[in-house]
Amino acid sequence: LTVHVGNVTYHFDNPEQAEEWAKRMAKKYQGQIHVKDGQFRIE
C-alpha cells in the first residue's frame, strides 16, 4: 500500500498502518485524504 504526501511516497505492508498514517498526515497538513486504487493521497 502506498501513501503519497505531496511528492513523498511511503510504502506500507499493513493496510491499517497505511490508513492510520494517512489520517495523521492529513491532520498535520490539514489536507484531504483521497483513496484510489489502494493508494492514499494527501492533498
Rank of each mutant, 00 (worst) to 15 (best):
H11S: 08
Y29E: 01
R24Y: 14
F40G: 04
P15T: 10
E43P: 05
I42K: 03
F12Q: 00
Q17A: 13
D37C: 15
E43Y: 12
V35H: 05
V35A: 04
V8G: 02
E19V: 12
E43Q: 06
L1D: 03
T2V: 10
E19C: 15
Q17V: 10
G38D: 06
N7A: 10
K36H: 13
K23W: 10
Y10F: 09
Q30H: 14
K36E: 13
Q39I: 09
R41S: 10
K28Q: 07
R41W: 15
Y29F: 09
G31L: 15
A18S: 01
L1G: 13
H4M: 13
V5K: 01
W21F: 15
R41P: 05
R41Q: 11
Y10C: 13
V3D: 00
E20V: 07
E19T: 07
Q39G: 12
K27R: 13
M25K: 01
K27T: 10
N14P: 00
K27C: 15
K27E: 11
Q30K: 14
L1N: 14
Y10N: 00
E20C: 15
N14I: 08
H11K: 10
H34I: 15
E20Q: 12
I42N: 04
F12T: 00
N14H: 10
Q32G: 04
D13F: 07
D13P: 08
H4Q: 12
A26H: 03
T9C: 14
I42R: 03
Q17M: 11
A18N: 00
E19W: 15
R41F: 15
K36I: 15
V8T: 09
H34T: 14
G38C: 15
Q17F: 07
G6R: 06
R41I: 15
H34D: 06
H11G: 02
H4N: 06
G38I: 03
K28I: 10
E16I: 11
N14Q: 07
R41T: 14
A22M: 07
F40T: 05
T2A: 09
T2Y: 10
I42D: 05
N14L: 10
V3E: 00
R41D: 07
N7S: 12
K27M: 13
Q32P: 04
W21P: 00
V8F: 13
G31Q: 06
Y29W: 11
A26Q: 04
Q32L: 08
H34P: 03
N7F: 11
H34K: 10
A18E: 01
L1A: 15
K23H: 10
M25S: 01
D13M: 08
K36L: 12
A26Y: 05
Y10E: 00
G31D: 03
E19S: 07
L1S: 14
Q17W: 09
Q39N: 11
F12R: 00
D37W: 02
I42E: 04
I33T: 03
F12C: 08
L1I: 12
V35I: 13
W21A: 03
Y10I: 04
V8C: 15
T9P: 04
E16S: 10
K23I: 13
T9Y: 08
V35C: 15
Q39H: 13
Y29S: 02
V3I: 04
A26W: 06
V5H: 06
E19N: 07
Y10A: 01
E43A: 07
D13K: 11
V3S: 01
E19Y: 15
N14K: 10
M25G: 00
Y10W: 14
G6T: 02
A22Q: 01
I42Y: 05
A18T: 01
G6K: 05
K36M: 11
W21S: 00
I42V: 10
F12N: 00
Y10K: 02
Q30Y: 07
E19A: 12
G38H: 04
Q30R: 13
T9N: 03
T9H: 08
V3N: 00
V8N: 08
Q30E: 06
K36D: 09
D13I: 08
R41L: 14
A22H: 02
V8P: 01
I33G: 02
F12V: 00
F12I: 00
Q32W: 05
Q32M: 08
K28C: 15
H11F: 13
F40N: 05
L1M: 13
A18Q: 04
A22V: 06
P15I: 13
N14W: 06
P15A: 12
E20I: 10
F40L: 14
Q17D: 13
E20F: 10
M25H: 02
E16L: 11
P15W: 14
Q17H: 09
K23T: 06
E16F: 11
Q30I: 05
T9I: 14
V5E: 01
I42P: 05
G38M: 03
K36C: 15
R41N: 11
K28F: 11
R24T: 08
W21D: 00
N7I: 08
D37A: 02
D37Y: 02
G6A: 07
A22F: 06
Q39V: 10
E19F: 15
N14V: 07
A18F: 08
G6E: 04
R24A: 11
Y29G: 02
H11M: 08
K28G: 02
W21R: 00
H34N: 09
M25A: 03
Y29L: 12
R24Q: 09
T2D: 06
E19G: 05
M25D: 00
N7D: 07
L1K: 09
E19K: 11
R24V: 10
D13W: 07
V35M: 11
D37F: 03
F12L: 01
E20W: 14
N7Q: 09
Y10T: 01
E43S: 07
E43N: 04
E20L: 12
G38N: 07
Q17Y: 09
K36G: 07
F40V: 09
K27D: 08
F40A: 04
V8W: 13
A26S: 05
R24I: 13
Q32S: 11
F40W: 14
A26D: 01
P15E: 08
H4K: 11
N14S: 11
L1Y: 15
L1E: 03
R24G: 03
F40I: 15
D37R: 01
V35R: 04
T9E: 06
F12D: 00
I33H: 03
T9R: 08
G6C: 15
T9G: 02
Y29H: 06
I33C: 14
N14D: 13
K36W: 11
W21Q: 00
G6W: 09
I33A: 04
K27A: 13
A18W: 05
N14Y: 08
Q17P: 01
H34M: 12
N7K: 11
Q30M: 10
A26R: 04
R41Y: 15
Q17L: 12
P15F: 14
A26N: 03
V5N: 01
D13Y: 06
H11Q: 08
H4P: 00
D37T: 01
M25E: 01
M25F: 08
Q30A: 11
I33Q: 02
E16G: 08
H11I: 10
I42A: 04
G38L: 05
A22Y: 04
H34E: 09
V5M: 08
Q17N: 07
F12Y: 01
D37N: 08
E16V: 13
D37I: 03
H34Q: 11
V8L: 11
A22R: 04
W21C: 15
W21H: 02
F40E: 05
D13T: 12
F12H: 00
V3P: 00
N14T: 13
V5Q: 01
F40D: 04
E16Y: 11
D37Q: 02
V3K: 01
K27H: 09
E16A: 11
Y10G: 00
N14E: 07
Q30V: 06
Q39M: 07
D13L: 09
A18R: 03
G38S: 03
K36T: 12
Q32T: 14
K28L: 13
D13Q: 10
V35T: 05
N7T: 11
H4A: 09
N7V: 07
H4R: 13
Y29V: 06
A26V: 05
V5A: 06
E16C: 15
Q17S: 11
G38P: 05
E43T: 11
Q17E: 13
P15Q: 10
A18D: 00
N14F: 08
V5Y: 08
Q39S: 10
F12E: 00
N7M: 10
A18H: 01
K28T: 04
Y29D: 01
G6Y: 09
Q39P: 03
P15L: 14
K23S: 05
I33F: 08
G6P: 01
H11R: 10
E43G: 06
M25I: 08
G38Q: 03
W21I: 01
Y29P: 00
F40S: 04
K28E: 07
A22G: 02
T9F: 07
V8M: 12
A26K: 02
H34S: 13
H4S: 12
K28D: 03
N7L: 09
V8A: 10
E20R: 13
A22K: 02
K28N: 02
V35W: 13
L1H: 15
A22L: 07
G31F: 12
E20P: 00
V35L: 11
A18G: 06
F12A: 00
A22S: 02
H11Y: 14
W21K: 00
L1T: 14
H11W: 12
K28H: 09
E16N: 10
Y29R: 02
V3T: 01
